[in-house]
Structures are given as C-alpha cells and as structure tokens.
Write a protein that binds this DNA or RNA. Structure first.
Lengths: 210, 210
DNA sequence: TAGATTGTTAATCGATTAACAATC
DNA sequence: TAGATTGTTAATCGATTAACAATC
C-alpha cells in the first residue's frame, strides 16, 4: 500500500469505479482483471492498479480482483457506509428536483430538513418532509447537527447564509449555487455542481469536433 | 498565439473565466490584470495568461485585460453566440427540473422539443412546450434538425435510444444518465452530468478533511 | 522615461503509462 | 510447474508554475 497523499484525480475516479463494479456485481460476476476492467471503463489497466493501490492491495496475483469485495471496499473508502445528516437550503424548482430525484440513502446521506425563505413554501410537504422557515435554521441545526448543506439557492442568497451555516457546524457543502464557497472557507469540504459550465464546454466541443 | 492543441483542463476552466468576467463586467469594471484576476479566482496569474494565450493575445502589456472584450471573446471561443437546437428526452422529475431551471438561451441553446415514452405525460405543457410522444422523435428530428440531445432518462432507456439519436444527426449529448455514451460513439461530443459522483466525493472529503 | 504587465520560453511538478519482478 | 495478473518501480508525458524579455 502506497501511503502517498491521494490526488484529486484519483478521488474523482472512485465513484466511477464504484458505479462500474456495482453493475458487474449485479450481473452476477465474481472476478475481474485490471485489463478487463480497463476495456470496460476506458482507463488503462496500469492506472486502475495504481489507483487502487493508493488504498491497499485489493487484488490477487494471477487472479485479479474480487468484484463484490472491491465494490464494498471502495464504498468504505468513499465513506458511503457512514451516516451523514444533510439539510437542503432552497426548495425552488432545483431544490425540489434534487430532493425528489436523488437517492440520498444509497450514499449514506439522510435528508433531515428542508428550508426556504419564501413563506408560501413553508409547510409544503416534499418527499415526506415539511419545508421549514429559514428562521428556524439555528434551532434545527442545534438539535439535529447536520454536517452537510445542499445549496439550491441563488448566489446572493448563498453569500448571505454561508457564514451562518459554517458557524452552525456544517462541514461540507453540496453547492449548486454560483458562489465559490471554497475560496473563503478553507476548512470545509465543497463539491460544486455547476451544470451550466458543462453546457458551455459542450458548446465548445460541438464547434471544435475532435 | 499558441497553436498547440487545447487541453481538456483549459477548456474546463473557460466557463469559470466567463462567469467571473461576467460578474466583473456587471460591477462596471473596465480592466483587470492577470494578478488581480488570479486573486479573485484562485488560479495563478501564470496559468491565466497561459490559458488565454491558447486562443490569442487578448491583453495589453502594462495595462492588463479589457473585461468587456475578454468576456465577449471567451463567449465566442465557447461558441455561445452560435444558435444550437436541443431536444430533451425524459420529462420526469429531473427532466422537468432541467427544462424549468436552465436558462438555455444564455448559452445560445434553444430547447426545441421535449419527449417522453410515458403516454400520461404526452401533451402536458412544460415551459411553454408540449411533451411529445417518443414515437414522433424521427419525424420531429428530420424537420427541426436538433444537434444536441439532453438525456434525462435511466441508463437502460439511454442505451436503447442512443443509436437512434446518433443516426438522426445528434452531434452532442448533455448526458444525465449513467450510460457512458462516449465509449461507444467516438464522433459525438458528450458532457456527463453525474451529480451522484460529486455526492460521493463529498462523502470522501468529509471523512478525510485535508 | 519609468512602471506595469503581458506573451512566451524554460523549469518544475505531478499524473499517466510502461515494464517487470513477485507471487498466486 | 506454467500461465496469469498483481503490486510497484521507472520512464514518459503533460500541465502548472516561474522567470523574463518585449512593449505598452
């Protein structure tokens, strides 16, 4: 096992491994070699072995990798087995879609509360949960201690609420807003979901077909 | 101007430049140096100059960059000024959210049609557009010639429909499904939006706070 | 002119790929 | 044992950063 610092590139590939292995598992397969996996995933076999060896020797020489075992190990590396409380801020079109569409439990998340500043939304039931007034955020967080906030609000609203969320103990943001949280708060984890960026790169690629 | 092949890393940073410059522009600023921009964006000034010089010399020695001009040039590089017809496949929670939430026009896209296989959805109006039956896809594409398909359907459905879309002339996919289109069709552009992946990497980062 | 800042080349750093000994 | 495939080291490749001459 390589004790090197794990690079961002490796971490970003882990969910993809997890996804492919989950599928192989559900197809009832038992073992796979790095070469076979490389053909399915479009990585090199070398890269796959390098990536996995950042975390431990999960394979067996002459055999390959046990799919079920590797799947479960990558899940643990990602921390999917650890329960994580999350709150969702902003229950507009996007927030509603996120709440309804994402199967949080499959990654160990529990959506504990949903908040909006718009009084007309408060009390509405989405995914079996009531939308709460943003004014009750402090109280709720002191009781439920969520560690993740999902930001489905515009940039200005995100700027306005980030301090409060961090001081209430939020350790990670799943950030759909255009506010660059990571630049200000160095000790929280941030994953940005900037769809529109990918729509722009698609536009570029269409024009420059390679 | 550097005529090197533009790397993926550079292309992925362009939307971010576009976003930051748009904001500076709306703040009424005229010029900015690579150093000032680097402080705002969290890149190095060197990288900014390198990136921009892949496409041309947009700055002036001793002055910096004209914000309005650079913003507009990056928009052109990304091809946002070119009109692009798009169709959306799958009008469930996710598809509806995408249709309602994304301001396609700001990137030069026009959402021309929406399709679903579920007959109960057909005829429903979303964002002023009727949901069409998937059985009318051929006819519609031969008339409207969309070049982009937005896939908001499950993996199996995506596998089943990709051939048809490619043969109907689709050149780019904005892919929310878990089907890896790019592996099979080498001559189409694909941008994957795999939210759940970022939810997993967030889980990892929470566990390994760096 | 002096000061500032670009465009661009060179140096460094890190990530990917290749190679191969270890070993199942 | 022979064949297969890993884990790991070494080589390559590409991306980022540093440096500086050009020039506004």
């Amino acid at each position: 096992m390589n004790t090197c610092k794990i690079s961002d590139s490796v971490i970003k590939r882990l969910p993809r491994y997890y996804r492919f292995l989950g599928e192989l598992k559900s197809q009832g397969l038992n073992r796979i070699s790095s070469r076979e996996l490389s053909e399915k995933m479009g990585f090199t076999a070398s890269q796959i072995r390098q990536d996995l060896n950042c975390f431990g020797g999960f394979g067996h020489q002459g055999y390959g990798y046990n799919i079920e075992f590797l799947y479960s190990e990558i899940g643990k590396i990602l921390g999917l087995d650890r329960p994580k409380n999350a709150i969702l801020i902003g229950v507009g079109n996007l927030g509603k879609a996120v709440a309804l569409h994402i199967n949080f439990e499959a990654q160990g998340y529990h959506l504990a509360g949903m908040f909006d500043s718009k009084e007309s939304l408060v009390g509405q039931i989405v995914r079996g949960l009531p939308v709460r007034s943003i004014s009750t955020l402090d109280e709720f967080c002191r009781e439920s201690r969520p560690e993740v906030a999902i930001l489905c609000i515009p940039k200005d609203a995100a700027v306005a609420i980030a301090d409060q969320l961090v001081s209430l103990g939020i350790k990670g943001f799943w950030n759909f807003s255009h506010y660059d949280i990571a630049l200000k708060y160095k000790d929280v984890s941030v994953e940005n979901v900037h769809f529109v960026d990918t729509l722009m790169t698609l536009s570029y690629r269409l024009k420059n077909t390679d």
